[in-house]
Structures are given as C-alpha cells and as structure tokens.
Amino acid sequence: MDTIGVTIRRLRRWRGLTLEQAAGLAGLSKGYLSKIENGKAAVERRSTLVAIADTLRVSLADITGDGLEIRDPDADSTVPAIRAALLDSDLNDNPPQGELSSLVAETQLVAAMRQANQMAEVGHRLPPLITALHTHARQAEALRALVSVAHTTSLLVKGLGALDLAWIAANRGHEAAERLGDPHWISLAAFARTQACSGLGAHRRAGVLAANALEIVPEESVDVRGALTLTTGFIDSVIGGDPSAALDEAEGLAEHVEDGNRHHLLFTPANVVLWRMSAALEGGHYAAAATLAESIHPSDLEINSRRTTYFIDYARALWGLRRPDEDVIELIAQAETLGPVRTRSNTFVREIVSTMVERARRQAVAREARGLASRMGLLRVG
C-alpha cells in the first residue's frame, strides 16, 4: 500500500501542480511538503491533511486510503449489511419485529461492545437491530433507542473507513430524534453528526452543528452539553482558533456528572483530559500533550476504545517531541493490543510508523517498526 506521502505526490502530479505551488496553496513550506512526500516527515495534524486535500481537490479518504488490507476482514464484511439496513429502513408504519424491551437491551449491549473494541461482533449485530427498531418507530422508547444505535453505527463504520455511511447513520439518528421532538435527544443526535462530519474533514460544519445543538440542549443534560462543548473546543483547535475556553467549560461540567457514560459518551474528567491532548496535538503543542498524558492513568478512562486513543495520542506527543523511537513504539504497541483495528488504521500511527521504518538505524527499533508496518499493510512484498 502507498504511504500518505506517496499518495500526495501522485495526486499533486495528477493535478499538474509543482511542489512549490502545492505547498503555497496548502500554506506549507516547500521543504516540509517535500519531506512528507518522501517519507522523511510525518503528517502530524488533521488541519494539515485537510489543507492538502483541499489544495488537491480530493477527499481525505483519497489521501489516507480506506485501509482495507489491514483491518479485520470479519468486521469489514459487515458493512454492506449495515448499509442495506440503513437504506432499507424508514420511520413509516411497518409490522413490528421482535420485543421492544429486548431490542432496547440489545442497543445498550452493542454500544458497550463498541466501546470495548469488539468491532466485528457489533457489526454482525447491528443490521437486524436497526431494521427491527424502525418497525417500532411509533413508540418513543424505540425512537430513543434508534438515536443510540445510530450513534453506535456511525462510530463503527467511521472506524471501518466508511465515512459517507457514518454520515448516513448519524442522519438516521437525527431523523428519529426529530420525530421524538425532545431537545435532549435532538442534541445527542447532533453530537453523532458532528463526529461524522469531522471524519469527512468537514470541521467547520461540525462546529456549526455543535453550536446549534448547544442552543437547545436542556440544562440538566450535562453529559450531552459537555460532549458538544468538547467538540467546539476541538474544532477550534483544528481551524486555528483558541480551544481553551470551551475545554475549560467542559472540565467544569464534567465535575458535576454522576454517570458520564449514560449515553456511552464517557463524559468524565479523565476523558476531558484526552480531548485536551487531542487539541494540544492539533496545535502542535507536543510537550503540553505529553504532560496531560502523564496527568492521568489509562485505567481512568474506563473503556478500551478511549484507552486506545490515549496510547495513540501519547505516542504522537512523544513523536512530536522527538523522543526515542523505542518509547513511541512501546505506546503504539499498547494501543494495538487494546484496539488492533483502531490502531492499525489510524492515519497518524501509520504516518509515524512509515517514517520510522524509513529512518530507523538501530536494529531493534527497525525490527519493531517493520513489524508494525507489516501488520498495517505498509510494506510491499516482492
């Protein structure tokens, strides 16, 4: 599989742009873009990827690839059935399928399983659940469950590279919430839409959705307000704004939440720290991100999906600080143990590993880096 740098060079030439022209349009130095294209420097920020994609007039997926060759084939095989369930279901009157109480319980189960990185199992369970819940759309409890299952679905398929499908899933949750007419659930559905937008690189649109939802979210819905506030802070960091006010507000809100995982949002003080790390990384503040990582323990994050992100972002921070490759590899290995699919398909991990393989000098480091690269499908055979 081509690295991001090789793909960028190919797309740049396809567009007929010189290195200098592309760098200027993307707001990068010619030297930095050259290093990216030649695997000498990793792309370390989402905003950089977005700027390059905009310059080349392609999507983020065109640059990052879908990673099909390194993900779980069992999980990937569930995507067509999920797509069919989403496109074939609607909120019109249909003969009820299954007991609603059982379907609601299944909704909670698959959400918890996704947080535990059990992607294939969740993928297999989702299609019949999506279809059956839609047949109970006359009942408020089913509509609430649809908001939840749409969020789970959106996050799952986003992690499997089906970014457009993630937006479709999030919109199905929005439709259910609008039918329900409850500001709490409408705001919760909006959060899922912000995540789908961000995956597509539409960060400003995600910010607008979050801001609009914050206008209507009830005061007592502290966890949902907190998640939306975190979103606005992170979006500010991506588009070059100051995220501190939003992140500080979210931190204050998290201190007053009894059950931060009520909607599988994990809105807790430790998770706010994780969002601060992401914002710091986006701003290029690697020392701050590393300090934040050291302020919490992975066990504070409670669920494997967030622990995986913790190790990935900690590795990114140390990489940005030019710490020893051994330290970076150790963190990536811990992330891979907890969430192999999530780790191996992460754009920034793949960039780090590709660059590390290219420059590794010590035999032990080279061996570990090449092992990671092989599992990520980054090494050519033959």
Score class of each variant (00 low, 15 high):
E220C: 03
P218D: 13
A196N: 02
R225L: 02
R204G: 03
C197K: 04
A190N: 12
L228F: 07
G226W: 02
F191C: 06
T194S: 04
F191A: 09
E219Q: 15
R205G: 01
R193H: 09
D236C: 05
E215W: 09
D223G: 10
E215G: 14
A202F: 09
N212W: 13
A206Y: 06
T194L: 03
A211C: 07
V222C: 12
A202D: 05
L209E: 12
I216T: 15
S221P: 11
G207R: 04
A202P: 00
L200A: 00
E220K: 09
G199I: 02
I235H: 07
T229E: 04
D223R: 11
R225G: 06
V224D: 09
T232P: 00
R225Q: 12
D236E: 15
P218T: 09
L228R: 05
G199A: 13
F234T: 02
L214S: 10
E215K: 15
A206K: 08
T231Y: 01
D236I: 00
R205K: 12
T229H: 04
C197D: 11
F191E: 13
Q195I: 03
V224G: 08
A213N: 14
T194H: 03
T232M: 02
G226D: 04
H203E: 13
I235C: 06
A196C: 03
T232K: 02
P218I: 08
L188H: 14
A211S: 15
A211K: 12
G199M: 08
R193L: 12
G201R: 10
R193W: 01
D236G: 02
P218V: 08
A227E: 06
A196G: 01
A211M: 09
D236V: 00
P218G: 10
A189G: 14
L188I: 14
A190V: 11
G226L: 05
A190L: 14
V224R: 07
L214T: 06
V208P: 00
G226Q: 03
A206I: 04
R204N: 06
G201S: 12
L188Y: 15
V224M: 12
L188P: 13
G201W: 07
R193G: 02
E215I: 05
G199C: 08
L228D: 02
Q195P: 00
A192S: 15
R205I: 08
G233S: 05
H203T: 05
E215Q: 15
A206N: 07
C197T: 01
T194A: 03
T231C: 06
A190I: 11
L209T: 11
D223H: 11
F191M: 11
G207C: 03
L209D: 09
N212K: 14
A192W: 05
A196V: 00
R205F: 05
N212F: 14
G201P: 06
E220Q: 09
E215D: 15
A210F: 08
